Amino acid sequence: MTGSLPVAAQVDLRRQPVDDVLERVEAALQVELDRQALVRKRRSLGGRTERGTWVRIERRGFERIGAQGWNGTEAAAVLQGVAMPEWYQGVAWREPGEPVMWRADELELIASPSVGKAALVLEDPGLPDAWWEALNASLDALAAQRTPRIATPDTATITQEHVTQNLGEVFPGVADTRIERWTPAHADLTWANVMGPEFSIIDWEDWGMAPRGLDAATLWGNALAVPALADRVHQERRADLESRDGRLMSLFFLSKIVGPCAYEEDPLLTPAQKEAERLVAELQL
């Protein structure tokens, strides 16, 4: 997609009336949503159905869809060896008169809740060893596969140019930002998108090829307010995070915390600044 595409108007689904959208989804998928327990986020909606499944609905502008299309959750159904909800069916449509697409997917309902209520965590969730074993097995299995899709973390297509620009703006001391290895990644591996105590990964709409270590860096970075948890992530994903690409991806994540949009109240800010100094020094050796 080029920059000449029309940009969709910003809409917050936490406040926008959505009854017409829910009715359309229910009719198309032949389900009944539990509207009293609907989960409303800025760009997406989610809810249980009367037949014990989960429906996820997302609104996204043309400029944020990219060349890979608009079916990430469906496309992820072919992945082997990754703990994730089974995909059953989906429906997509264009919002009349707007450069906007809607998509709804019906999925297996996962019994375990999200480990975190938000992307980051502020206390140790006390995850069992079996959880970490399943995390490792899933990320290793994912990295061993291939896809023509390109990951879109934060809905922005990740490219070498994008990485170089982000790191150059925040960490100009890192001269060589060249990525050596690209592997499939979930691209939004936050604590809100991993379930526990039984491990599973949800929300696959942005997955695709990405620099090695993107997922590990995202999970690690969002644990920095809980040092023991961040250390456990680093220990479990050491091979990724201590690779050169993994260090670059860690800085890529930290650039969003310590960069121009940093704010003092962020619980990640102080540990992120310390880790950024370490990583910059290591990459300069």
Rank of each mutant, 00 (worst) to 15 (best):
T2G: 15
S4G: 08
V7D: 09
Q10I: 14
D12Q: 06
D12T: 06
R14H: 05
Q16V: 10
P17N: 07
V18I: 13
V21E: 01
R24G: 00
E26Y: 00
L29T: 02
V31T: 07
V39Y: 14
V39D: 14
S44K: 13
L45P: 01
G47E: 07
R51W: 11
G52E: 07
V55Q: 04
V55S: 03
R60K: 15
G61I: 09
F62I: 12
F62E: 14
E63H: 13
W70K: 12
N71H: 13
N71M: 14
G72I: 02
Q80L: 13
G81E: 10
M84I: 04
M84T: 10
M84K: 12
Q89D: 13
V91D: 11
V91F: 08
W93L: 07
E95T: 09
W102P: 00
E106T: 11
L107P: 01
E108R: 09
P113M: 11
K117I: 12
A119P: 01
P125H: 07
G126M: 09
L135Q: 07
S138P: 04
L139S: 06
D140W: 14
L142G: 01
T147W: 02
R149T: 02
I150E: 12
D154K: 14
E161G: 12
V163Q: 03
V163W: 01
T164E: 14
Q165K: 15
G168Y: 02
V170E: 00
F171N: 04
P172F: 06
G173E: 15
V174Y: 03
D176R: 08
R181E: 13
D188Y: 02
V194M: 04
P197H: 07
E198I: 10
D206M: 15
D206H: 15
W207P: 05
A223K: 02
L224W: 04
A225E: 05
V226H: 07
L229V: 07
R232Y: 04
R232V: 05
V233G: 02
V233P: 00
Q235A: 14
Q235E: 15
S243V: 03
D245C: 06
L248T: 01
M249R: 02
S250E: 08
L254A: 10
L254Q: 03
S255F: 00
V258Y: 00
P260M: 11
A262C: 11
E264A: 15
D266S: 14
P267E: 09
A272D: 05
A281P: 05
L283H: 03
